[in-house]
Every structure is written in structure tokens, then in C-alpha cells.
Amino acid sequence: MFEARLTSGKILKQLIEALKDLVQEANIDCSDDEISIQAMDNSHVSLVAVSLRSGGFDHFRCDRPLSLGFNATNMGKILKCAGNEDAITLKAEDDGDSLSMVFEGPNQDRIADFGEFARGARGSDSPPGSRREKCWKIDFNFATMRGVGVLVVIFDRKIYELKLMDIDSEQLGIPDTDYKVTIQMPSGEFQRIIRDMQVLGDTLSISCTKEGVKFGVQGDLGTGNVLIRQNAHAEKDEDRVMIEMEEPVELTFALRYLNFFTKATNLGPTVILNMSPDVPIVVEYPIGETGHIKYYLAPKIDE
């Protein structure tokens, strides 16, 4: 049995939005201490890795490790039915073939007096559409709760079932790496740079020197360059630009994929870029204290 409740269900909505254009199918791997997703895009150029720690959920139970294979587009369609303020509970049986998703609105709790409810449950003289009748229709189980002083009646609860699938996931082992360059910057600013650079070309060079981080693109229209300098003392944490550099690094990447990564911008105010010569870049969006979504992108190499 797996069951996890996220008060801020919006995180789950945004996570699926952030990966569904990149990967079609993936496994949600559930364990004692986290739920995680690792999947590559079809052309094996990029990889997305999600981790949400169990401590970030307000209820988390996972009796044994489970892999829940899902279609990202379909899950995205269902999650669109959840409001941004809804809490989302995920539930799956150990040997089930579906994932149940329960959406609860922020003001769903209503307290009803047991006696009043008991009359309603017996089908008494409640006029149609009255509060009592509504309770009765929504959850008949309350009739079994005799002897309990109060009832919590849930008016606004939606339950969806997503069909699961068996997915042969091709997992990659990603070694712990000390990167030569770590850049932390506002996620919105990174998104704007990627969007603007795409107008000019399809390959972005990211070059980190003492001067700062230079994003450059060359195309038929012309060239574009944006220089970001360290700004570690900005008033707000999220406006800070912090650059740690052991040695200068310059790499080039396909803008098309970087653009997919920026779909995660809403998940947090900050993005962290990790680079070393001749290895994939890591574009990480921390998700509060809950976890992260990381994207890996293989560089383009000069022939």
C-alpha cells in the first residue's frame, strides 16, 4: 500500500507540467523515504530526475517499494482537474493497476452534528437538495459512524483513477560529481534568456569566466549575448546571482531542450546550473524543502 498526501497539490501539477513535454512515459518510484522519477527523452539527449522526500508530505506511507508506470500526458490531463489550492492524495495498492488521485479543496471540511446526520441517513424528511441530503449522497459510510460525536463531511472531494502501465525504464546511474562551475540565479531570468535566445538560433553557448556567465547564440538573424554577473548581496534571496568557479568552463547546448527545462520555472524562484568541461549540464530547480527537479543535458561537441 502506498499513500501520500501533499497539502500543496500544486507542486504535483507543476511537476507533471514540467516533464510531460520531455518524456511520454515514466515510473514513479515510491520508497520509504521519497517518491522519485527518472526518465530520458526519446532521443536520449536529456534526462529528468525528480525527488520529493517523504518529510515534505503531510501523510506518507509506503509499505514496500513500488514502481508506478504512468503516461505523463494522461496524468497531466487529470491533474488539470485539481485546483491550485487543492490538497492531492496519491494512493496505490501493492499489486494494483491504477493510481488513485484524490483532490480536496481548501475549504472542504464541514462539521455536521451526528444526530442531524443520522436522521438524514435514514432518508427522513430532509427536503431535496438540503444540506442533510447532500451529506448523505456524498458519503454513505457516515451511516456506519454511529456513536461518534461529530462528523467531518467532505463536500468537495474528487477522486480520479489513472490507469498504470508496465514501463521498461532505462535507468542511468549518475555519479556524484564535483562540478567546476555552479551558478545560482533567478529562475525567471534564466527562462527569459532561453526564450529570447531561441529567437536567434538553436544552439546556446554558456561560458563561465571571472567576468561572469555569458549566454551566447549565433544564428542567421544575428547574434545575441547576455552577461550575468555575480550579485550575491541582492536584497531578496531569490534575486541573487551566485557563481562558484574552480576553473572557466564553456559548453554548448541545444536550446530546444533548455526550453523544455524552463517549464519548471513555476516550481521555485531559483535555478542552479552545474557545469564541468565535456559532461552534461545539470539544471536544478529546488522545490522548497520538499525536493527538486533536475534536468541533465548532453553537450554538443565540435566536430
Binding site: 530520458m40 532521443s43 536520449h44 539527449v45 536529456s46 534526462l47 532505462e170 535507468q171 542511468l172 546511474g173 549518475i174 555519479p175 544552439t203 554548448t252 541545444a254 559532461v279 552534461p280 541533465y296 548532453a298 553537450p299 554538443k300 561537441i301 565540435d302 566536430e303
Partner: peptide
């Protein structure tokens, strides 16, 4: 000209 590399060139599959 530059060539797009694949992730398997850097990470082991398991």
C-alpha cells in the same frame, strides 16, 4: 558544426 552527444556517452545504464 557541432554534434549532439547522447547521455549514454557519460552515464552508465543499469
Amino acid at each position: 558544426t557541432s554534434t549532439q552527444t547522447r547521455l549514454e556517452s557519460y552515464f552508465m545504464r543499469y
